[in-house]
Write a protein that binds this DNA or RNA. Structure first.
Length: 658
DNA sequence: CAGTGAGCGAGCTTCCGCTTGACTT
């Protein structure tokens, strides 16, 4: 018997080949092979929303190779991932195979980890393609197509040509716009930090107490006048110790990394963009150093857990190995446990080993995160002693608190690279509640509340993931897309909406609040789960969406006014007509300066974003430019005389590249 | 390495999610 096994990735194929004998041929489909057409809607709405699938043009060679292999085989086994998208790939593979080769047996197997036991058990119990699960994917695909290919043309008509909208990207832009609104609306609130030191018996110093509670009638100090009154009262009060507490505390380590958390950590720790992180992870994956890097599962294989425990015991000692193996569950509603968490394939290849040191700088950094988080996740709890002392005044007006933690056992924090100082309290011995103390010193400092931060890659991905919007394979590309469309820009690595982004968001929120709702995806996922469970028909889900969406599209097409997008003004007079003002416009090739009196005056000039750097190759200046695809790069102001250019910030190679 | 925009109404743009190379900028 000759068996053909088809999986989605060549690396998975290679891994499988280690477990299967010569009678198995293993090929990869390289992801999806059939999809809706790109140039048209491709959904026959009047005919039961029938999707008009076609073979993907860039997969023709791959498919041909698979078909050739099918002809030589006695049976075909589809072993794509056990999730919605994996089932769809299997469905379409089966479709194409049965169309081209008659009388071939096509089986479907699934497994959740690539081990001999899992594979053998799957091979012993083959099934068929799960049509319900496939239909859930089909509903997802058709919904996304309808939303995207109906809303986008609406924007072409009502805002500007070439724009796009979609279930994921439009909500991502909305998040950025609303954060910007919050920042604009923000009014700083004044408050005062009050600290005090006390003494007991004129000699025992008790320092570093913070005022945590003030008289109920006046809980907050909002001005200097109020502060003065409070300080005067506090200075006249008598004090006693009102609370003493010593508590054992422990902290367990966090789960190993998944795509989103890896992108977040690399962003906050190294300033990497999500895209840059994925590039490094892809390289590590291809070198066999880490498991698959597009995953939302925190599960670790039993084999790795055993190896990690042995490694921890050997390297750090028995105390660092938890009694029970630590098992993590993926809590996401989407819970598609197709893969493992991202972990080193071999725990003994440490992040500072010779093998890793020879890699590129980005790869070393990303590998370090992956290795550390995976190993830490299997280490024993951190243990500490938390002490708490409270001092209250006798009139019941104020409470001061001193809280500190002393480390008893470092546990997983032995590998915690962010040196964290514990605040220690040494004077707790010998104190008791009711002890009289005197105020020794009172300090105060004026503070203002600060506005929320703009989103960076890390923050945005975190929110998207929490809301179930987007998938591990798409986080990085979503962030790229919304920048390419000109909806948002990065400033100091953080997202700022453009006038275009704000105009489009306002338009969509006004007319399509349901689609722009942060819960839209979550509701859709709920329906998809029902379809997968066979409790709802895919057609019902799609057509009930269409029944309100289609009329709304028609209505807005007819009634909505064209949106005026604000322009950025420069304050500079037009040198040609002397009447208009120069404004920043965004065209196909990026930003440019133009006269506000267009079309009466057609003066234009290049928009130059200057930087602080000089060109390293001539006497020109380094300026920021954009490629036709919208990617930012650094070039010389003397172009085309000087051809110097760079993706990275010059003389600061630590900065991110896009 | 010129040219972009607005609106003429020619033909075109657009979604999300799964994969890797082969390509510049």
């Amino acid at each position: 018997m000759k068996h053909l096994v088809v999986v989605e990735s060549p690396t998975k194929a290679k891994t499988l080949s280690r477990f299967l004998g010569n009678e198995y041929v293993i090929l990869a489909s390289y992801g999806h092979i059939r999809d809706l057409p790109k140039k048209k809607l491709g959904v026959d709405i009047d005919n039961g929303f029938k999707p008009q699938y076609q073979a993907l043009s860039d997969k023709k060679k791959v498919v041909k190779k698979i078909i050739e292999a099918v002809k030589d085989a006695d049976e075909v086994i589809l072993a794509t991932d056990p999730d919605r998208e994996g089932e769809a790939i299997a469905y379409h593979l089966k479709y194409l195979i049965e169309q081209k080769v008659k009388k071939i047996k096509v089986k479907r197997i699934t497994f959740h980890e690539i081990t001999a036991e899992a594979i053998n058990s799957a091979l012993k119990n083959p099934g068929d393609v799960d049509l319900s699960l496939f239909e859930a994917q089909q509903a997802r695909r058709v919904l996304d197509r309808l939303v995207g290919y109906k809303l986008s043309p609406l924007l072409w008509r009502k805002v500007r040509k070439g724009l796009s909208a979609g279930r994921v990207q439009s909500v991502a832009v909305r998040l950025i716009c609303e954060r910007e609104d919050e920042i604009r609306r923000f009014v700083p609130q004044e408050y005062w930090l009050i600290e005090a030191d006390f003494v007991k018996n004129k000699s025992l110093k008790l320092g570093g107490f913070e005022l945590v509670r003030l008289h109920k009638a006046k809980p907050k100090i909002g001005s200097e006048k109020e502060l003065k009154e409070v300080v005067r009262d506090l200075k006249q009060s008598g004090y006693e110790i009102s609370k003493l507490q010593i508590k054992e505390v422990k902290k367990s380590s966090m789960p190993p990394l998944v795509t989103s958390t890896m992108q977040q950590m690399a962003s906050t720790r190294f300033g990497f963009s999500a895209h840059r992180t994925m590039r490094a992870a892809q390289a590590l994956y291809e070198k066999g150093l880490i498991t698959y890097h597009r995953t939302d599962s925190v599960h670790l294989s039993a084999k790795f857990v055993d190896e990690a425990r042995r490694f921890i015991k050997k390297s750090y000692g028995d105390a660092y190995v938890p009694v029970k193996k630590r098992i993590f569950k993926t809590k996401s509603r989407v819970a598609q446990e197709a893969h493992e968490a991202i972990r080193p394939t071999r725990v003994d290849v440490t992040y500072d080993s010779e093998k890793i040191k020879r890699l590129g700088a980005d790869e070393i950094k990303v590998y370090s995160l992956i290795w550390l988080k995976a190993v830490m996740s299997q280490m024993a709890d951190w243990k500490g002693k938390q002490t708490l002392v409270e001092v209250a005044d006798k009139k019941g007006m104020a409470v001061f608190r001193n809280q500190g933690v002393v480390e008893v056992f470092d546990g997983w924090r032995r590998l915690y690279w962010q040196g964290r100082e514990d605040k220690k309290i040494e004077f707790i011995e010998g104190l008791k509640v009711g002890d009289q103390v005197e105020l020794a010193d009172l300090r105060y400092e004026q503070k203002f509340t600060s506005p929320p931060n703009r989103y960076g890659d890390a923050g945005l991905i975190k929110v998207l993931e929490e809301k179930g919007i987007g998938r591990p394979s798409t986080y990085a590309s979503i962030l790229q897309k919304i920048q390419q469309r000109g909806y948002v820009e990065k400033e100091e690595r953080r997202f700022v909406p453009t006038f275009l982004g704000e105009a489009v968001t306002e338009f969509l929120v006004k007319y399509f609040p349901e689609v722009m709702d942060y819960e839209f995806t979550a509701k859709m996922e709920g329906d998809l789960d029902l379809i997968a469970a066979g409790r709802k028909k895919w057609l019902t889900v799609v057509s009930s969406f269409w029944s309100w969406f289609a009329p709304q599209i028609e209505k807005v097409l007819g009634s909505a006014k064209r949106v005026k997008v604000k322009v950025e003004k420069t304050g500079e007079k037009c040198p040609e007509c002397k009447a208009g003002e120069l404004v920043v416009r965004v065209g196909r090739y990026g930003k440019f300066l133009a006269c506000s009196n267009f079309p009466e005056c057609s003066y234009t000039r290049e928009y130059v974003q200057k930087t602080k750097w000089k060109c390293p190759e001539c006497d020109g200046e380094v300026i920021v430019k954009k490629t036709k695809k919208g990617r930012k790069f650094y070039g010389c102001s003397n172009y085309p005389k000087c051809k110097w250019g760079s993706w990275r910030k010059p003389r600061d190679l630590k900065e991110q590249s896009d």
